[in-house]
């Protein structure tokens, strides 16, 4: 069979996928680009061409810069925490102890809990008057009086990150654990004989096995954290004083609450561009790691 026939056949087999992708992603994406240069409303009148107005207005508003910083902050802290706690948990689960199998199985629970349920659950836990966190901390004596966790900008962000981290660190842990189990035992014992200390053993023997999968997890988690909407929507709606408002929430407000499809689209494209840059930057790193891990 000739090479061209094989290629043609492959494209034919891809056809259903391509049609779907163009219909539900490609075309909407192009239309978003078109809308972003107009002053269209969401429903009703077709807008007229306004050039770069929307972009200029969005990029120069203080709301945008503030929200961008909030989003980056959320992504940076939550992903870092998830990676660190996840790897620590994996190292622990790789040790031998009674109940290890059960504990490993339990790790899937937070990850399986739907995001909305997770957000709702933590909102109840953080409730300032009747929440379990206030109750637990005062009963142990760590807190004198009940606090408004989601009502203060500083604690609201930390509370959100904690909730997000609780749901996502187990996934990192399970991926890392699977990688750890691939580390050949004799290499570890050899390094013990050589007298390597725990840190060096982790750094030079174990980490190379972890690096590949972890970087992939890191990329996925960062992109998701950058796009975050649902957990914040349910827990704070961007409050207090917009201190937890992320880019996705800002786009929702602009395009749907205020019904300005045009400027909403331009804002959405700015966000898209940022995620793309982020992904490309990561992609370069992934390639490097994939090369060294193989």
């Amino acid at each position: 069979m000739s090479g061209t026939w094989l290629t043609t056949r492959a494209w034919l087999l891809m056809l259903p996928l391509l049609i779907v992708m163009i219909a539900v992603i490609g075309w909407p994406m192009m239309d978003t680009v078109r809308l972003s240069f107009t002053d269209s409303k969401l429903v009703g009148t077709q807008g007229s061409f306004v050039g770069l107005d929307n972009y200029v207005r969005m990029l120069s508003s203080t709301n945008f810069t503030r929200t961008l910083v909030t989003t980056l902050w959320f992504a940076l802290i939550s992903v870092t925490a998830e990676m660190v706690i996840g790897v620590l948990a994996a190292l622990l689960l790789n040790q031998e102890f009674y109940g290890r199998t059960v504990l490993r199985a339990l790790m899937i629970l937070p990850w399986a809990l739907p995001t909305i349920v997770n957000a709702t659950l933590w909102r109840l836990i953080y409730n300032p008057e009747y929440g379990a966190l206030n109750a637990a901390l005062t009963q142990i004596g760590l807190l004198d009086a009940y606090r408004s966790w989601l009502g203060e900008p500083a604690t609201a962000m930390i509370a959100l990150i904690a909730a997000d981290c609780w749901k996502n660190f187990p996934l990192v842990a399970l991926i890392a654990l699977a990688a750890l189990q691939a580390v050949p035992r004799d290499i570890v014992s050899a390094s013990l004989v050589d007298g390597a200390n725990a840190w060096n053993r982790f750094r030079y023997v174990v980490l190379p096995y972890l690096a590949g999968p972890l970087v992939v997890a890191l990329v996925l988690r960062t992109i998701e954290a950058f796009k975050v909407f649902d957990i914040i929507w349910v827990m704070t709606r961007g409050g207090p004083a917009n201190s937890t408002r992320t880019l996705s929430i800002l786009v929702y407000q602009e395009a749907f609450s205020f019904q300005r499809a045009g400027s909403g689209a331009s804002l959405a494209l700015i966000v898209t561009l940022m995620v793309t840059l982020l992904a490309i930057a990561y992609g370069t790193v992934v390639k490097k790691f994939a090369g060294s891990a193989a």
Partner: peptide
């Protein structure tokens, strides 16, 4: 009540 800043009507009623 300092928690007022995260209350909606139903929270006020509960308190």
């Amino acid at each position: 009540n300092p928690n007022s800043k995260e209350f909606l009507e139903e929270d006020v009623r509960k308190v």
